[in-house]
């Protein structure tokens, strides 16, 4: 926790054995290319569809836009998937579930934040029950803005993810995508990164592990370190 996993290159378990054997550099590069080709062209998608964007995800999977033609297939269980599409608003009641499902997915895995609600909370970013962006509790690779984004925008997001997978496999440095912000207030929880208070990570992990127990964690005497409230940046948004 607390480490920005999206910037780490995934290494195959056979890597260290291959490195010891002489003359396998070439084979290794070739194998990496094959693995990269495979993983970017057969993405198993877990649609974390909560609201409106889920309907557009369904539309994208249907005949007109046909998400399947770039090699994706939607599965109902996180254990078989390697791309999570967070489509819709995530509330504080839903957030532990999303985190748990994300932790269930096997490595290597990627996340796409689809729609303004998943990116920043959008209309609801000030509301007491809405998480202002899923990147406050899990890493996000690709942001697809829109309310909801058109299915072709989602396709373009998948294309960007494919480029990212390819570059990472080749060992290139990939600039992490930044949250598209336009004159909005930043959320009260700082996003996943270095400027983040580790108390949030610890508490989110504990909340995920103790999911379903309600307030028993706090009742048992476990005190969580409360981070100091962040000074809200003066944006132009105000309480629009």
């Amino acid at each position: 926790m607390g480490v920005d996993q999206s910037n780490q290159n995934f290494e195959h378990p056979l890597f260290e054995y291959m490195e010891k054997m002489p003359g396998l550099d070439l084979a290794m590069t070739t194998a990496d290319k094959i693995l990269s080709w495979g993983s970017r062209n057969s993405m198993f998608v877990f649609p974390m569809a909560t609201s409106c964007c889920g309907i557009e995800f369904m539309a994208a999977a249907c005949g007109r836009f046909d998400l399947d033609r770039i090699g994706t297939i939607a599965r109902g269980t996180p254990r078989q998937c390697d791309v999570m599409v967070i489509a819709g608003t995530i509330t504080v009641k839903m957030a532990p579930r999303v985190k748990k499902l994300w932790d269930m997915m096997p490595e290597p895995k990627w996340a796409i934040a689809m729609g303004s609600c998943a990116i920043s909370g959008d209309f609801y970013r000030d509301i007491y029950s809405v998480v202002p962006g899923v990147d406050t509790f899990m890493p996000v690779d690709v942001y697809v803005p829109g309310c909801p984004p058109n299915p072709d925008h989602l396709l373009e997001g998948f294309r960007r993810l494919q480029d990212k997978i390819k570059a990472k496999r080749a060992g290139e440095w990939v600039e992490p995508e930044t949250r598209p912000v336009s004159g909005m207030q930043m959320p009260s929880v700082p996003r996943y990164g270095t400027d983040r208070d580790p108390a949030y990570d610890q508490a989110q992990l504990m909340a995920t592990q103790n999911m379903g127990l309600g307030g028993e964690l706090l009742a048992a005497g476990v005190t969580l370190p409360q981070p100091a409230p962040q000074p809200v940046q003066s944006g132009e948004g105000g309480d629009s």
Partner: peptide
């Protein structure tokens, strides 16, 4: 219920 409570009435 309540996993998608977005506080529309408060907004």
């Amino acid at each position: 219920l309540g996993y998608l409570h977005r506080g529309v009435e408060k907004l």
